[in-house]
C-alpha cells in the first residue's frame, strides 16, 4: 500500500524514548568506545568530544562535538546515536539533525549560549533535556522535549544530586495529583510551568514523556538505585570509560538496570569490576562548577 506518512510527530519522537526504557545510554568519544558500549548491551550511545569529567578538568567553553567524530560513531554501531548541543544553540542542533543523530541532548554539560532554550518543535529529530524538578521538566516539554533526564551533577561520579532531583520530581508529581482543580493555575504559577501540562500531570500522575536518570552514576548499584526510585532508564557519562575496566563495568550496569529489584543478581554483577571512577564531593564544587544550575 502507499501510506500517507507523517514524520517527526510527538508520538514518533516520544516513541523512540519508550523503546530505550529499561536500558543504559553510554557516553562515548570514539568508534572504539561506541563498539564496546554496543557489545555490552547499551541501548544507545551519546557521541561526545570529551566525557563530562574531562570537560570539568579541561575548563573553557565546551561545544558540540566535531561532526567527523559524530559520523565516525554513527557508522560504527547499529544502535541509536545521540549527541549534545549547547543550551539555546539551535544551529548546533540543526547540524546534528543533518548528520542523522537519533536524539539531540540540549545539555547543561556544554556551555550555554542563551537564556532561552531551543524551540524543539521546529525540528524533526527529538530532544532530551535535563531537569532538577517538575517545573523545569514541564518547561522543557512545553518547548518540545520528547524525553527528560535528571541533571544530577555530571562528571562527578557522585549520584547524590540525581537522587535529589528524582525525589523532588516524584514528590511534586504526588503533590500535584492532590491539588484541587480550582487551584491548578496557582500550581502552574508555583511550578512556573505551562497550565495544560500541569493539568495533564495532575490527572495522569506521571510525566507525559520518559524520564531517565543522569549525572554521577558510576556503579551497578547506583543504576539500580535510580531505577528503584522510579526512573525509566539510565545515562552513564564518565562512569564507564573513566573506570578501570570499561567493558565489564558497562555490562554490569546494563544487567543491574534490568534486574534492579533483585539484590542477589546485583551482588553477582557487581563483583570484581575493578576501580570505579574517582568521585567528587559536591560540597567542594564552587558555584560556577555546578553544571546543574545552567539553563533553568
Amino acid at each position: 500500500m502507499e501510506p500517507s506518512v507523517e514524520h517527526g510527530t510527538d508520538r514518533v519522537k516520544r516513541g523512540l524514548a519508550e523503546m530505550l526504557k529499561g536500558g543504559v545510554i553510554m557516553d562515548v568519544v570514539n568508534a572504539e568506545q561506541a563498539k564496546i558500549a554496543e557489545e555490552a548491551g547499551a541501548v544507545a550511545v551519546m557521541a561526545l568530544e570529551r566525557v563530562p569529567a574531562d570537560i570539568r578538568a579541561h575548563g573553557g567553553v565546551a561545544r558540540m562535538a566535531d561532526p567527523a567524530k559524530v559520523q565516525e560513531i554513527i557508522s560504527a554501531v547499529s544502535i541509536p546515536v545521540m549527541a549534545k548541543s549547547r543550551i539555546g544553540h539551535f544551529v548546533e542542533a540543526q547540524i546534528l539533525q543533518s548528520l542523522g543523530v537519533d536524539y539531540v541532548d540540549e545539555s547543561e554539560v556544554l556551555t550555554p549560549v542563551d537564556e532561552n532554550h531551543i524551540d524543539k518543535r521546529a525540528f524533526t529529530v527529538p530532544f532530551v533535556c535535563g531537569a532538577k524538578d517538575l517545573g523545569e521538566a514541564l518547561r522543557r516539554i512545553g518547548e518540545g522535549a520528547a524525553m527528560i533526564r535528571t541533571k544530577g551533577e555530571p562528571g562527578t561520579g557522585n549520584v547524590v544530586e540525581a537522587v535529589r532531583h528524582m525525589r523532588k520530581m516524584n514528590a511534586q508529581i504526588r503533590w500535584l495529583t492532590t491539588v484541587d482543580r480550582n487551584e491548578m493555575m496557582a500550581a502552574a504559577k508555583e511550578l512556573r510551568a505551562p497550565l495544560g501540562l500541569v493539568q495533564e500531570v495532575a490527572e495522569t500522575g506521571r510525566l507525559p514523556v520518559v524520564n531517565f536518570a543522569a549525572g554521577g552514576i558510576a556503579t551497578p548499584a547506583d543504576a539500580a538505585l535510580m531505577m528503584q526510585l522510579g526512573c525509566d532508564g539510565i545515562f552513564v557519562g564518565s562512569g564507564i570509560f573513566k573506570s578501570g575496566d570499561p567493558a565489564e563495568r558497562a555490562r554490569a550496569i546494563v544487567e543491574a538496570t534490568t534486574f534492579y529489584e533483585d539484590p542477589e543478581t546485583l551482588a553477582k554483577v557487581s563483583r570484581n569490576l575493578g576501580e570505579a571512577m574517582v568521585g567528587i564531593d559536591i560540597d567542594t564544587l564552587g558555584p560556577t562548577d555546578r553544571m546543574q544550575d545552567r539553563g533553568l
Binding site: S4, E6, H7, P80, V101
Partner: peptide, 25 residues
C-alpha cells in the same frame, strides 16, 4: 534513522479498516 521514523495507515489482511501504525527506526 530516527528522522525517518513515521506513522501511517496500514491495510492489514483480515482487519476491516486500516490500522494506524507507528514505525520507529
Amino acid at each position: 534513522r530516527q528522522v525517518d521514523s513515521f506513522e501511517a495507515d496500514l491495510e492489514v489482511h483480515g482487519l476491516d479498516r486500516p490500522y494506524h501504525a507507528v514505525f520507529i527506526r
